[in-house]
């Protein structure tokens, strides 16, 4: 089983320590919900993992499929879906997918046709040939989701991913994530606790710059939301 080790990651902005030695182990086959208050550092953690920004200290390592030979996490190991999607506006959705499929063709053997991918996220036929410039937030998020569906990176990071989707697309996305989790480590940050209970196998809390995992049985408890809120409040007071 593939494992991701986050080891003692620290990151400061302007003298303020946002991540204070965040450490955690994530396993393949699970969807992790990363929960934290506004400004807790969820996006910073994702940015450090995806090499968008450099962490001050610490590292992230990933093992092979058998949980051995951990190597430093590489940008190729990560698929990152941003909360505000950024895509090249001058391409159409179809052209972007063609380009993305082309560059992944060498490393993946199970690539489908462009239209099959669009069908997976229920993108209407006309919209596929429209410029991304005119896409809505939700449509851009769908394209971003397709990127990791195509590239199938071992680690998938999703920053508030489902908030831009309508109910139908959201349901479809959840189904896709559940289908994919077998081969991946999926971590997604969210404020929506209901989504976390609905979709996640594990909950990780980012509080006071540190990561802590809560017992998964809590997910099934009726007072899950109250307990999480208490934990977040406690952490805030401790800080």
């Amino acid at each position: 089983m593939m494992k991701l080790f986050i080891e003692n990651i620290t990151k400061s902005y302007d003298g303020k320590e946002v991540l204070k030695g965040a450490s955690m182990t994530f396993e393949q086959g699970k969807i992790y919900g990363l929960i934290g208050r506004n400004g807790a550092g969820k996006t910073t953690l994702f940015n450090c993992l995806s090499d968008e920004i450099k962490a001050d200290k610490g590292k992230a390592r990933i093992t092979d499929a058998h949980g051995r030979y951990a190597h430093l996490l590489d940008t190729n190991d990560i698929g990152y879906v941003f909360s505000t999607p950024v895509l090249p506006d001058f391409l159409t959705g179809y052209e972007f997918l063609k380009f993305y499929i082309d560059i992944n063709r060498g490393s993946r053997s199970d690539i489908k046709s462009i239209d099959e991918y669009f069908d997976m996220v229920q993108m209407p036929k006309d919209d596929r040939f429209r410029l991304i410039k005119g896409y809505s937030h939700g449509m851009k998020s769908k394209i971003q989701m397709l990127c990791f569906i195509i590239a199938k990176p071992p680690v998938i990071l999703l920053d508030e991913p489902l908030t831009a989707f309508d109910v139908v697309a959201s349901l479809e996305m959840k189904r896709i994530l559940k289908d994919m989790k077998r081969d991946h480590i999926i971590i997604f940050s969210t404020h929506i606790l209901q989504l976390a209970t609905n979709l996640c196998d594990e909950i990780v809390i980012l509080n006071d710059g540190k990561l802590s995992q809560i017992d998964s049985y809590m997910l099934r408890r009726k007072d899950f939301e109250e307990r999480i809120i208490e934990l977040l409040k406690d952490g805030d007071e401790d800080a």
């Binding site: 995806s50 090499d51 968008e52 940008t75 190729n76 990560i78 990152y80 941003f82 950024v86 895509l87 090249p88 506006d89 001058f90 560059i103 990127c147 590239a151």
Partner: peptide, 12 residues
């Protein structure tokens, strides 16, 4: 402005 700003967000 029209290409690298968006694509440089991606690791690949």
């Amino acid at each position: 402005n029209n290409c690298d700003f968006s694509l440089l967000h991606y690791g690949f």
